[in-house]
C-alpha cells in the first residue's frame, strides 16, 4: 500500500515535469499548446540520436538540445502562436493540433514503428534503487525526475515572482497592450516565455525516454496527462500543477490495482470528478492549494 503510494508520487513527479510547460504556456499566453506532447517526443528522439550515434550520455544530450528546443519554442511563438492568437482563442488550438499531426507523422516516417528507449544509455542507473526501511525500494531515476520537476517548478515560480523578466512576462500575460505602453517589449517577453516552456518540454521528453519506451505517436497520451494534471491542479499556480500531477498518478496507480485497464481510466475519472466538483462549487473554483491552505489554518487554530 505505502509502496504503491510512494511509486505513485514518483510517477507524479514525471507528470509534473511534463505538465509544467503546458501550464506555464497556458498561464502566460492563454494558449494550450496541442503540440506539447509531440515536442516532448521530438526531444526524446533527438537525445536518442545523440546517444545512439555519438555515444553521448542522455544527461549530456539534454544539455545540448536545451538551446535547440528553446529556439524552436521561440520560433513557434513568433511564427505561429503570435499570428494565431490574433485570430481569437480557437485558432491556436487548431494551429498547434495541425503542428502535432505534422510532427507525429514526420517522426513516424523517420523512425518507423519501433519503440525506443533511453534507458540502455545510462548504465546501471535505470534499475538502481534506494532502500527505504520496511523493505521498500525506490528507483533512483524516478527520484531524480521528481527532483528535476521540483527544481524546474521552483525555478519558474521564483523567476515569475522575483525577477524583472518574470514581472514582464506576468504583465504581458495580464494585458499585452498596457504592458507595451509602460515599456515592456511584449513580443520579447512572450518569445522568452515560449522558449522557457519548450525547454521544460525537452527535459520531460528525456524523462519519458529514460523511464520507459516511446514511439512516434507517444505524444498524444503525454499531452493528455499534462492537461489533466494542469486542470486537476487548478491551472492557477505552478505548485498546483505538482499537486494535480500527484493526484493523477495516485488515481492511475490505484486504478491499475483494481483492473488491468484501470490505469488510464482511474486518471480520467479523477479528472472528470474534479471538473464536476469545480462546477458545483461554481464561482469558488477548486484550487486545491487554497483548500489545503485553509484546512491547514483551520487545523492550526
Amino acid at each position: 500500500m505505502i509502496n504503491i503510494l510512494i511509486q505513485a508520487v514518483l510517477l507524479g513527479g514525471y507528470y509534473a515535469l511534463i505538465a509544467c510547460g503546458l501550464a506555464f504556456m497556458f498561464q502566460v499566453m492563454r494558449v494550450i499548446n496541442l503540440a506539447h506532447g509531440a515536442l516532448a517526443v521530438v526531444s526524446a528522439y533527438l537525445v536518442w540520436l545523440l546517444a545512439d550515434s555519438a555515444g553521448l550520455s542522455p544527461f549530456l544530450g539534454v544539455l545540448l538540445i536545451l538551446p535547440v528546443m528553446g529556439i524552436a519554442g521561440w520560433l513557434l511563438q513568433r511564427l505561429m502562436l503570435e499570428r494565431a492568437v490574433r485570430g481569437g482563442e480557437l485558432l491556436p488550438v487548431l494551429t498547434t493540433f495541425g503542428l502535432a499531426i505534422v510532427l507525429d507523422n514526420l517522426m513516424f516516417q523517420q523512425f518507423g514503428a519501433n519503440t525506443r528507449s533511453l534507458s540502455p544509455y545510462i548504465g546501471d542507473l535505470s534499475w538502481e534503487a534506494f532502500e527505504l526501511p520496511g523493505n521498500i525500494y525506490v528507483g533512483k531515476l524516478p527520484v531524480y525526475i521528481l527532483v528535476a520537476a521540483l527544481v524546474i517548478l521552483g525555478g519558474l515560480d521564483l523567476m515569475l515572482k522575483r525577477t524583472a523578466l518574470g514581472r514582464q512576462i506576468r504583465a504581458t500575460a495580464a494585458d499585452p497592450v498596457t504592458a507595451g505602453l509602460i515599456g515592456v517589449d511584449a513580443r520579447r517577453a512572450a518569445g522568452i516565455a515560449a522558449a522557457l516552456a519548450t525547454m521544460t518540454v525537452a527535459v520531460s521528453g528525456v524523462a519519458l525516454g529514460l523511464r520507459g519506451t516511446f514511439d512516434a505517436y507517444a505524444g498524444a497520451p503525454q499531452l493528455l496527462f499534462a492537461f489533466e494534471a494542469t486542470i486537476i491542479g487548478g491551472a492557477r499556480s505552478l505548485w498546483g500543477v505538482l499537486i494535480g500531477a500527484i493526484v493523477l498518478a495516485v488515481a492511475q496507480s490505484f486504478g491499475a490495482q483494481i483492473h488491468p485497464q484501470g490505469f488510464l481510466l482511474g486518471g480520467h475519472l479523477v479528472f472528470l470528478i474534479v471538473l464536476f466538483v469545480r462546477l458545483s462549487l461554481k464561482g469558488r473554483s477548486l484550487n486545491l492549494m487554497q483548500i489545503l491552505r485553509s484546512t491547514g489554518k483551520g487545523a492550526a487554530q
Binding site: F26, I32, P92, V93, F227, I231, Q261
Partner: peptide
C-alpha cells in the same frame, strides 16, 4: 451539462479525454 462550461483549449482537450474514457469503457 458540464463540458460546455469549459473554454477554448480546455473544452478541446476535455473532449479528447472523454473520447479516451469511452474507448476504454467500450473495451471493457
Amino acid at each position: 451539462l458540464f463540458m460546455l462550461h469549459l473554454r477554448a483549449g480546455e473544452f478541446a482537450i476535455g473532449m479528447w479525454v472523454l473520447a479516451s474514457i469511452a474507448h476504454l469503457c467500450v473495451n471493457l
